[in-house]
């Protein structure tokens, strides 16, 4: 699996376009984090999408998957290698964005003769941890979609899932279908659970209902990804 992680990181950071885009996003996120470390670093889904997009599907469409799977590698190991690779890459992004945020928070005011603000490292650390916790779920969802969708459709599917699950309870309420609205709300809470990581990271509601649903969702999406990928066939022609 380590080799698969290494391969993923090489693929992602071997592309100048991705590195540049991540750099710009890190600057933007860092600028926001300078003012609100926990709030800005937590939801960085755009950078995660950039890191994780097509993580499996690109290997499949490019034909690289065959020579990898011809080696003594379990499909699950390949998949978890991609997953861990996404998290490491995203963790790196959060660190760089935090670095920018801390620099902006402490150094920028000094350039203008003012006193630098307190770097508030614990808040940055909680922001990074919250970002990684969110990434555990979003990366699992992206990985699941990437096992059967083509190209970068996994990212599109994630946003569609977001949109649909957010809109469904509202639509059901508008239609005055109370049962449907309740079901849609419960479904959204279980598929995309919202956890108050700020509270959890301060030791509050660590074993609460939301964290339980979040853990089940992470494991569920990963299990689905392994199931779909282990059953998938690979060919590049019918010759």
């Amino acid at each position: 699996m380590i080799e698969m992680v290494r391969r993923f990181l090489r693929q992602r950071f071997g592309s100048a376009a991705i590195v540049t885009a991540l750099g710009v996003l890190a600057l933007m996120t860092g600028a926001q984090a300078a003012a609100n470390p926990e709030g800005a670093l937590g939801p960085g889904i755009l950078a995660l999408a950039l890191v994780a997009a097509g993580s499996v599907s690109r290997d499949v469409s490019g034909g690289a998957i065959q020579i990898i799977l011809a080696r003594p590698i379990r499909r699950a190991s390949y998949l978890f290698g991609r997953y861990v690779g996404i998290l490491i890459a995203y963790g790196g992004f959060l660190l760089v964005a935090s670095g920018f945020g801390i620099a902006l928070r402490t150094l920028l005011p000094r350039l203008f003769g003012a006193a630098g603000a307190d770097p508030d490292l614990p808040a940055f650390a909680r922001g990074i941890a919250a970002g990684l916790a969110n990434a555990l779920l979003f990366a699992a969802i992206l990985l699941f979609f990437s096992t059967f969708l083509r190209g970068y459709a996994d990212v599109l599917a994630l946003f569609v899932l977001f949109g649909a699950l957010s809109a469904l309870p509202t639509v059901a309420a508008q239609l005055r279908k109370a049962d449907l609205a309740r079901f849609a709300e419960r479904f959204r809470e279980n598929v995309l659970p919202e956890v108050d990581w700020s509270a959890v990271l301060r030791g509050q509601r660590v074993l609460g209902e939301a964290t339980g649903r979040w853990a089940v969702a992470v494991v569920g999406f990963l299990a689905l990804a392994v199931f779909v990928f282990s059953r998938r066939e690979f060919t590049y022609g019918q010759d």
Binding site: R10, I67, P72, Y236
Partner: peptide
């Protein structure tokens, strides 16, 4: 797999 070598027709290697 540990005893196998495979060369595909379509050389979809990691070009980077």
């Amino acid at each position: 797999r540990a005893r196998t070598g495979y060369m595909p027709e379509r050389l979809g290697f990691d070009r980077d």
